[in-house]
């Protein structure tokens, strides 16, 4: 094809083009000097331009350069991120260790007690009891507890990190403008896509790898809803707080956070649900729990194994959702507005 050669020739760039490849091979059509009709002209993409002028890189060079670039910054990036994220590994490791070494007859009643305490509903506690007996009975208890402990750590950390970010966004419009696209991206990027750089950064056996993958995905709702909740606080109440001379801190602690709490809790509920959704994908990068069984079911075509584990995840989702929603409803009830 002689599609774009003429342009480079007429611009006098031929020499520059061939510089990089002194002995460039001529294609058959070039040798024949075929002329193509105008309607056959391809889009001037990198690959097509490369054919005409070898100094222009191909598309695969672009992706390759991204890769080499990433590999080049990787050691320095690791130097910063490794110690920064190490506590996450510890948290995940020790919580897993704690939950799995605790005997079932101690842990299950503890969970039931906590459930009763936050929901004040014996119906929910009963539902949770049934579910755990079910897990124990079909020997999925350890897997379920592993999944639960991962979600526990990730949710706590997401809440601790997400709420301050949400508050910052609600107080500062330019912070909101900058953070919102990042949140949009985290929510829409296919989860596998941000697994890739994480795999490059950390060893695949490190817990922080899946911890980060889960947190990137599930931190979004708690940030968004904290921001929204604080922005939605009645302007009349803010005015009253100001009229009585509250400092910004007093206003935040005494007025804004308490009134935004229903929204913040709704965000925490969503965060729990989303981290549960990530558990299966995280098992690709060595996260223990029910996800590994699902993965096993897919890899080895064991329908039963995958199906029961999948059902187990649904059961966990249902009880976590019920517990957090009932706790939320209790807050709403006591602060009816």
């Amino acid at each position: 094809m002689l599609s774009y050669e003429n342009i480079f020739d007429s611009l006098g760039l031929r020499e520059w083009c061939d510089e990089s490849q002194a002995n460039s091979l001529m294609s058959l059509s070039q040798l024949r000097g075929d002329k193509i009709e105008w309607w056959e002209l391809p889009f001037p993409s990198l690959d097509n331009l490369h054919k005409a002028c070898s100094a222009i890189p191909q598309t695969r060079d672009l992706t390759a350069s991204l890769e080499t670039g990433f590999l080049a910054v990787r050691p320095s990036l690791r130097l910063v991120l490794d110690p920064l994220t190490q506590p996450l590994s510890w948290a995940l490791d020790y919580t897993l260790l704690f939950f799995t070494t605790m005997p079932w007859w101690a842990l299950v009643p503890l969970i039931l007690l906590i459930t009763q305490f936050v929901t004040k509903s014996s119906r929910i506690t009963f539902l949770v009891a049934i579910c755990f007996v079910f897990f124990l009975f079909i020997d999925h208890y350890t897997y379920a507890i592993q999944t639960l402990s991962i979600i526990f750590v990730c949710t706590v950390l997401c809440t601790l990190i997400g709420i301050p970010i949400g508050i910052l966004m609600s107080k500062n419009d330019s912070a909101q403008r900058m953070i919102t696209p990042v949140l949009d991206m985290l929510q829409t990027l296919p989860t596998f896509v941000y697994l890739i750089p994480l795999i490059f950064l950390f060893k695949i056996t490190e817990p922080k790898l899946y911890g980060l993958a889960i947190m990137f995905y599930s931190i979004v709702p708690v940030i968004r809803l904290t921001n929204l909740g604080i922005r939605l606080v009645d302007k009349n109440l803010i005015e009253a707080a100001d009229a009585y001379g509250m400092t910004a801190r007093q206003r935040l602690v005494n007025v804004e956070i308490p009134l935004a709490l229903p929204n913040i809790m709704a965000g925490v509920n969503q965060t729990i649900m989303m981290s549960l959704a990530m558990v299966v994908i995280a098992s690709l990068v060595s996260a223990p729990g029910l996800g590994t069984l699902v993965l096993d079911g897919i890899n080895n075509l064991r329908l039963g194994v995958g199906f029961v584990a999948g059902f187990g995840i649904v059961v966990l989702a249902v009880i976590l959702d019920r517990i957090s929603k009932t706790a939320l409803a209790r807050i709403d009830e006591s602060r009816k507005i």
Binding site: N236, L237, E239, A240, Y244, P258, L259, R335, K336
Partner: peptide, 15 residues
């Protein structure tokens, strides 16, 4: 210390 205010829509803290 020197000023207080009463509002049309009461503006009491609901919580």
């Amino acid at each position: 210390n020197r000023m207080s205010m009463v509002f049309q829509k009461f503006a009491l803290m609901p919580h």
